[in-house]
Design a protein around this nucleic acid. Structure first.
Lengths: 248, 248
DNA sequence: AATTCCGGTTGATCTACGTCAAAGCGACTT
DNA sequence: AAGTCGCTTTGACGTAGATCAACCGGAATT
């Protein structure tokens, strides 16, 4: 079984520090066999649109590698990102024929798609899958609510710090230096995408990034590589009172 | 069977214009019987706190009558509402021991609670319940994402208009005059609660309400009774491009 | 090596909304 | 009738972040 299958199915992550989000982490062999029959892979280049809001969507999918975004757009062009999909995250809604948001590849992207009809059938037969999906959806709902606090009440500086710590936490390379409290990672988003995530303009994002750099909270190498000397300090800047963003 | 049971179970709403959200709209008699055994009712007065964030929570529940809010608070007191629970909405997360948000009664409130342990067991046995819960959670996720667009990108005036149209849409009294495009309803929230919903201050809420009144978009009778002469105009003010906020 | 392009930075200015403060108003208490 | 309490409105003023505009710098193109 190729690597991405393992990742998708959640069996290579015994030491994964974050809650694992793949669809069928607890499926048995027979169920896996059935999923095997209805799945196929699709690749997208960075910047490519996966689906437009309103399009017919006859599959559900899981991100294998790369990053995708969900965004909403108003008639006059104002845009708000409403979802950031990292590897193992799930897209698509059983029981809805059309996509509700634009899905875009932020980086080169590989998705594992399941044909919707048979997936839904599998869901009615195997309680595991529905329950796992419920768990994942509840996690997403929690993330959305954390995000709402960010959008509604945080300052620009706090928003940036929050986003950086969210990305750092979900990025595997985090593990490299975690003992010392220092972290380094590559930003998968442009300044504009960050702005769409945070409900800011790209200019404000740029200014606040510079400010965090000036104040020694982060280091910048080029435009994308972020070095965080003290992760706790970053989290403090983010203004979070939660237990690091992962409840339970 | 008393009225609230009927409402909870979703059997008195054949003509309900909004998507019905009760837990067990599709349960069979046997399942209902089991739910019957693990449920009890609780009442709260307006303003009373149902649960504090972090508290042990050994039940899940469904709102029977009244309105409850979910809010998050930062250390320095900034507050953001992240959920508004109307009758038939569900609170609580199977599989999590503690509450993640403050739950407060915005009006006098009756909730139908299910003891968590047996509810979870019922869920593993009856696919209906898990699937219904998944559906409801996905609806909530959609609402949260619509809300994120509001918080991140809408102006104060648009935010107010959006909130009013959301409440109007979910309020039963809406039906009374819908043929003419006119609607009237009572606001269940104080200005401060509206502000917490919208990521604004209560002063800005008050000013924008006055502005909408001055411009004839709404009429105010006292502080709480809202009359909307032309619902489409209100929706236009809200800046929504969606199909009225209810996706398929 | 020059040109273009794209994403990013920085500066000057504007404005929507927040902050602080005072006063209105209906409901309840004495 | 007067006082007080909670909620709301309104005004004067301040500011964080938006807007508009110029410029920068690396990578790809010629």
């Amino acid at each position: 079984m190729p690597h991405q299958d393992l990742q998708l199915l959640g069996h290579d992550c015994g030491s994964c520090p974050i809650r694992h989000r793949a669809v069928c982490a607890r499926c048995d062999a027979d169920e896996l066999q059935q999923l095997e029959h209805i799945k196929y892979y699709r690749s997208y280049q960075a910047g490519q649109t996966v689906i437009w809001s309103g399009d017919r969507m006859d599959f559900v999918a899981s991100v294998v590698t790369g990053i995708a975004t969900l965004t909403q757009t108003m008639e006059d062009g104002r845009r708000q990102m409403v979802g950031l999909l990292l590897p193992s995250d799930f897209v698509g809604r059983p029981g809805r024929p059309a996509a509700a948001y634009d899905v875009t590849a932020a980086t080169d992207l590989v998705m594992c798609c399941f044909r919707k009809k048979p997936f839904e059938e599998l869901m009615t037969k195997t309680p595991h899958v529905a329950q796992r999906l419920l768990e994942m959806t509840l996690d997403e709902l929690d993330a959305a609510r954390e995000w709402m606090l960010l959008l509604g009440r945080k300052t620009a500086r706090e928003k940036i710090a929050s986003l950086l710590s969210i990305i750092a936490r979900r990025d595997a390379s985090l593990k490299l230096k975690s003992a010392t409290g220092a972290v380094a990672f590559d930003l998968p988003l442009t300044r504009e995408e960050m702005a769409d995530y945070l409900g800011l303009t790209l200019e404000t994002v740029s200014r606040q990034m510079s400010a965090l750099k000036r104040d020694g909270v982060i280091g910048l190498e080029g435009k994308r590589h972020i070095m965080v000397p003290d992760f706790d300090l970053l989290v403090e800047e983010a203004g979070d009172d939660s237990d690091g963003g992962f409840l339970v």
